[in-house]
Write a protein that binds this DNA or RNA. Structure first.
Lengths: 160, 160
DNA sequence: TTTGAAAGCATTCCTTA
DNA sequence: TAAGGAATGCTTTCAAA
């Protein structure tokens, strides 16, 4: 039986794990033997540690990072979404998930019920998605848009 | 001489590139030979394609993805920042960059001048950073916070 | 955690289309 | 300009201690 994720808790990570994490979160393709040399342990040790970090969920996978602009995605916006009723939450999230341009979706408290990040090719493309997809979703009352003119930086959570 | 990044433009990507991208953006550690088999080409071809995708900036690198909760980061918030004057922008961004808990920072238009994502261990930790770091930055007039109770999903830009 | 061995992979170069 | 094939040197993986 699995622990439900709302009970997720921090896991014990030692100095070696931290050092490994720092290296592999910067470059997922780094040879484990290179990590091993930097850490002063064997390659097999790194291999087993990384395996364990995956097993206990400290790392959830790896990815090559694409540059949206190079694929023609030049518009980035954040949107706050107001719902008609809180109970629409789940179905709205599922409707949002079906829109590939919605790249991030949060359940929030405060001014909005849902907060999303959306990447489109052009401003027109964004308008098209808002008009034809977002506003059609049942349960959405209204939205507020913040356009990102530039992403200044982006990184992962600090590792100690 | 490099092209400035504000002139970045979409790059020609063929079907093979797309297939490669789909695979390596899901799993940065996938053996190139496996990609090769799935694509029906040689390993050398994949190797050269990935190299090229990096060279032309379509992919900017690779990373293992950490699960913030497992490292004790249980609070996630978005914050809109109002500046006293627009010209403070650069220095404020640099001050924000120096705060490791600020994991994303955008130059925005609309209601806020800057929009950030911030991950902290606890709500108290968030308050501490707002009171002791954010509010101390010269040029910040005031901030508005949206707490994320849950990240429903997160993904990269669609590849065709 | 380590070692050691087997298997598999990345990388390079040269050739071909 | 892009891809295949083959060689070499590494890396990964797995058992055993």
């Amino acid at each position: 039986m699995n622990t439900p994720d709302y009970l997720d808790q921090a896991v014990n990570i030692d100095k070696l794990d931290e050092k490994i994490l720092k290296l592999i979160t910067q470059n997922a393709r780094i040879p484990f033997l290179e990590v091993a040399r930097e850490c002063g342990v064997s390659g097999a040790a790194i291999h087993q540690r990384v395996q364990r970090l995956q097993n206990i969920g400290v790392v959830s996978g790896s990815e090559f990072i694409v540059t949206p602009q190079k694929l023609g995605y030049n518009t980035c916006a954040y949107m706050g979404i107001h719902l008609e009723k809180a109970k629409f939450h789940t179905q709205v999230v599922e409707a949002l998930r079906a829109i590939p341009e919605v790249v991030e979706c949060h359940f929030t408290t405060g001014q909005y019920a849902i907060f999303i990040k959306i990447q489109t090719k052009t401003n027109k493309h964004l308008k098209h998605i808002i008009d034809n997809y977002l506003q059609e979703i049942e349960g959405i009352a209204r939205t507020e848009t913040f356009m990102s003119l530039e992403m200044d930086f982006k990184r992962q959570v600090p590792i100690k």
